[in-house]
């Protein structure tokens, strides 16, 4: 692989949400949805973000786009700080990134014709004439595998998979470099899911896109990602290349997640590491390591001190005391 260029660098990103109090005497509380996340995304790669619901993976994606205001930390896009951008400067930054959502029926306007839905981001940019935009809509529809006459129809006339294709076409309309896909295939049936995954991968090759792919489904993430970060209660517990992370998961949470996936294997019964309980509330995260309440290898230290990320090898970083040297 050629030398990797960092497209997006995130340092100590935090997104806290205040919790409504019943009275002013009550202590101020915050939900730490994203709590001190640092990572970098290289140009042309797909970084998968996995975690259970409530782990902060969607908020993390939204914070990068500044749809959620970061509480603290830096976001560097091509080396430029963007967390303070406002107005037209922010617009310029956002022009280079787009988002694909889980439910296209909720994220796209059902009262607009498909052509208008796809054209809208271009119209806002004011760089193309009406004719050019029309032409581009047709091109985009074809790129995502839909017929040209789809532009005159409405959203309800399409199936789930086709709607997701429309969502993808809209995201591609202004030639973004970076796409955040938030559970783009979770609502789809398996046979359609693979069509959309293949489409996303083809488009990545064609337009040299960089993806941040958010999903709770570890098998889907494994298929599409180059690197994977595992989130738990707003923190990254492990990050690594797909190959290393899946072959040799280090963090007990990653191990448990992987072993919880049902597998088709009739010959050797799998060795499941059952996790007790559920994700604790992010309003009241455990002191020390966030995972210690459910960890099968919990030690005394885990109750008091929060482990920091450490580099295990070239490809993998983990936040766990089990690997302290």
């Amino acid at each position: 692989m050629p030398k990797k260029e960092v497209l997006l660098e995130i340092n100590h990103l935090k997104a806290y949400f205040p919790v409504k109090r019943k009275s002013m005497k009550e202590e101020k509380k915050v939900v730490k949805a994203v709590d001190d996340i640092s990572l970098e995304i290289y140009r042309g790669e797909t970084l998968g973000i996995v975690g259970e619901s409530g782990s902060g993976k969607s908020t993390f994606g939204r914070t990068i786009l500044k749809l959620v205001e970061p509480t603290e930390g830096e976001i560097l896009y091509k080396g430029q700080q963007i967390q303070h951008l406002k107005g037209s400067n922010l617009q310029k930054y956002r022009n280079q990134m787009q988002m694909i959502f889980q439910d296209p029926f909720a994220s796209l306007n059902p009262r607009m014709r498909i052509g208008a839905i796809i054209e809208e981001p271009m119209a806002l940019q004011l760089t193309l004439t009406k004719e050019q935009r029309k032409k581009r809509v047709k091109e985009l529809l074809q790129k995502v595998g839909l017929a040209e006459d789809a532009m005159h129809k409405y959203l309800h006339e399409f199936s789930g998979g086709q709607r997701q294709r429309i969502g993808i076409a809209r995201a591609l309309a202004i030639n973004p470099e970076f796409i955040i896909a938030d559970e783009p295939v979770s609502a789809l049936d398996v046979s359609v899911q693979s069509q959309v995954l293949n489409l996303l991968m083809d488009l990545q090759d064609e337009f040299q896109l960089t993806y941040l792919f958010i999903s709770h489904d570890l098998s889907v993430v494994k298929h599409i990602s180059d690197r994977v970060a595992v989130l738990y209660l707003g923190r990254i517990v492990e990050i690594g290349t797909k190959k290393e992370l899946y072959a040799n998961p280090l963090h007990p949470y990653t191990q448990a997640l992987l072993s919880a996936i049902p597998v088709v294997n009739f010959d050797e019964p799998k060795q499941a590491i059952p996790l007790q309980g559920e994700l604790p509330s992010p309003m009241n995260p455990p002191v020390g390591c966030v995972f210690h309440t459910r960890c099968p290898f919990v030690m005394g230290k885990c109750h008091q001190v929060r482990p920091t990320m450490q580099e295990m090898n070239e490809h993998q970083r983990v936040a766990c005391f089990l690997y302290d040297k």
Partner: peptide
């Protein structure tokens, strides 16, 4: 449900 809860 999430995978770990699904397994349970």
């Amino acid at each position: 449900l999430d995978v770990t809860v699904q397994a349970q």
